[in-house]
Simulated assay, not measured.
Amino acid sequence: MIGFVGIGVIFAMVFGGYILAGGKMGIIIKSLPFEMMMIGGAAVGAFLISNDMAAVKHTLKDVGKVFKGPKWKHDDYRDLLCLLFELIRLARQNPVAIEEHIEDPENSSIFSKYPRILSDKEAIALICDTMRSASMNYDDPHQVEEVLEKRMEANAHHAQHSSHALQAMADALPALGIVAAVLGVIKTMAAIDQPPEVLGGMIGGALVGTFLGVFLAYGFVGPFAGRLKTVIDDDAHFYQLIREVLVANLHNHATNICIEVGRQNTPSHCRPSFSELEEALKDVKSSGAA
């Protein structure tokens, strides 16, 4: 919602200020379709040249995150800690029983309690792969932490491609605006025999290209890239929490300590309070006992 508010503020302040200063919208409206065709079309073409089809689809999909915000909310972090608590507790009580859950999470009675987490393939793979490795005696905490760190770095690099692609487009738009403006000047010079009022309108139309390139770059595409990077970084904390809890488990800390390590590493705006998490874990224990 706040993204739409920001767009409204940009238009209101830029064009409102222009009109209040005595500017006329006629020349902008007349030139806008042609300038947008040149600048926007060239930007899209450059974007397609510099990215493969998978990256293009990924970027188009990720643009929605600018308005939706981070995927993982306060309740999701609490549920993740409860899920990890159940899995760690079961793995310590009955190492054989945990196998059916980590080998087939889709049909697991534990994972099915948390459908939002279950729907995220990377989160489930991270949990199951790490716990499976521990069950195969690959349980050196430092080695596992290093492997998980490299895995998450690779995932983060891939996830950030969309923001990098948008930022590259933002960097190119002012130059493309100059290209459109130069074409407008060429057009004007070809009509140099026209009266001053006609030439003035043509020069004004050419300058719309420069304005549009800078306006799109710093008013829209650049902020979109920045916001997308922030959202992706926020969502990455969810997977980092999984790493922290599972590595703490490999250090053989008490189950409650492992979960507290995860709680402490949760971003402050999503972190459940100690008492809230205690209540949630009590519910998990009571449902497990039942």
Rank of each mutant, 00 (worst) to 15 (best):
I232K: 05
Y239M: 05
E149N: 15
S163R: 09
H161Y: 14
L250I: 08
L148T: 04
H251R: 15
M152H: 02
A236G: 06
G205E: 02
A165S: 14
A191M: 14
V231T: 06
V245R: 00
G219Y: 00
L228C: 07
P174C: 11
F224K: 02
L176A: 03
L148M: 10
A165L: 10
L199S: 05
F211P: 01
P223Q: 07
L148F: 08
Y239R: 00
G222S: 11
A180N: 03
A172W: 00
R243V: 05
V185P: 04
G213Q: 06
A170Q: 07
E244Q: 10
R151F: 08
F224L: 13
A254R: 14
G219I: 03
I232R: 11
Q194H: 04
A191V: 09
I186V: 15
H251I: 12
G184E: 01
H158T: 12
V182R: 07
N252P: 00
G205Q: 05
K150M: 15
A236M: 15
G200F: 05
A170K: 06
D234K: 09
L148R: 06
E149W: 13
V245T: 07
S162W: 08
A248W: 04
F215Q: 11
D233H: 11
H158R: 15
R227N: 11
G200D: 10
N155L: 14
Q194Y: 12
T230D: 13
R227Y: 05
F215Y: 07
F224P: 01
G213P: 06
G177M: 05
G204T: 10
G201L: 07
G219N: 01
Q240S: 15
I232W: 04
G204L: 08
A236N: 12
A175N: 06
L241D: 05
A159C: 12
T210S: 09
P223D: 00
V185S: 12
G200N: 09
L212H: 06
S162E: 11
V247S: 10
V245H: 07
I178C: 02
L216K: 10
G205A: 01
L183R: 10
G209T: 07
V182T: 04
